[in-house]
Nucleic acid binder design. Structure first.
Lengths: 161, 161
DNA sequence: TATTGTTATACTCTATAACTATA
DNA sequence: TATAGTTATAGAGTATAACAATA
């Protein structure tokens, strides 16, 4: 049952009306959670975008670097450096696409899949912790509301930060 | 009544499981909204942090630059440049604090208050538009849930991005 | 002629360190 | 000795432009 404090308690003496906006709270909740997630990923030597690319490469689609950079809205040059890093870490393999030799087919290695799982668990834990302030039923509710809000915001929903 | 799509529709052929996490959706909802807000503020020659400082200075407290930089979690050197800009725009006035001549007392000018109001309206409109996908009652619900989630996250709730 | 991946380069932003004036 | 504000500078991160290979 949600009630009581409609907004976070503010320190005595300070009134910051911004904090009463739903949009402000939404933004803050999202960015605090993301910061926490990035911090836990950092501990695994991984930034959030690294995690996103792992996740994107986990599907069945064969994606090129340009596909990825368009999908995640990251600059192609940034993507080069990122894939370099992932390849060096042994998480991703580049092989030429035989039907268009300009492109790579990128794929996860076993280590990459392992890293994805490990990172996923860590992020899950952060998320669970963050959401623990609210009972299970309300979490479902929250997820549904967010789904509604984002329903027609594709493809921005996938963009990287 | 919220139901139907629990997650945004994904383009055919792509499955991005990340999108089913409540935390991911929360993050995205927040950052999409913030991007939209920043875009509308840009049109007024203002970044989000500019707006935050205006809002912070609107209260009764007399805040120094260091107070502001601690409150909004912005580097003191960044704050100097920001207040310079605001002073030049005629939105903020610096005068020495007579009881500690190292500090300034910063205050909004009439123009500054006007700019705050104008910016506030613009951000409100963005927020209303974003939330319009969800009926009024659910918006209240959302706000309450977010308030609960953030209740014990002070003072991060006020930090600038 | 256009596109993928790449490199080199320029630019923007932020943080670091050092200075001044006050306390 | 410590703090507020300031400046100059270095560093990280990102975008821009030009190039080679392929289509």
């Amino acid at each position: 049952m949600t009630q009581a404090t409609p907004t976070p308690a503010q320190p005595a003496g300070l009134d910051f009306p911004l904090v009463r906006r739903t949009g402000y709270l939404l933004n803050k909740a999202g960015s605090i959670l993301m910061e926490d997630a990035e911090r836990v990923l950092m501990a695994q030597g991984m930034r959030l975008r690294y995690f996103y690319v792992l996740a994107a490469l986990d599907g069945d689609l064969s994606l090129s670097q340009q596909d990825l950079s368009r999908l995640l809205h990251l600059d192609p040059t940034t993507m080069v450096a990122l894939i370099d890093e992932m390849e060096q870490a042994g998480h991703v393999e580049r092989r030429r696409n035989p039907s268009d030799r300009r492109r790579y087919i990128l794929s996860l290695t076993g280590d990459g899949r392992e890293a994805l799982e490990r990172a996923g668990s860590a992020v899950d834990a952060v998320e669970q912790d963050f959401l623990s302030a609210v009972p299970e039923k309300d979490r479902e509710r929250l997820r549904a509301l967010l789904g509604d809000l984002l329903a027609d915001r594709w493809p921005r929903v996938i963009a990287c930060e």
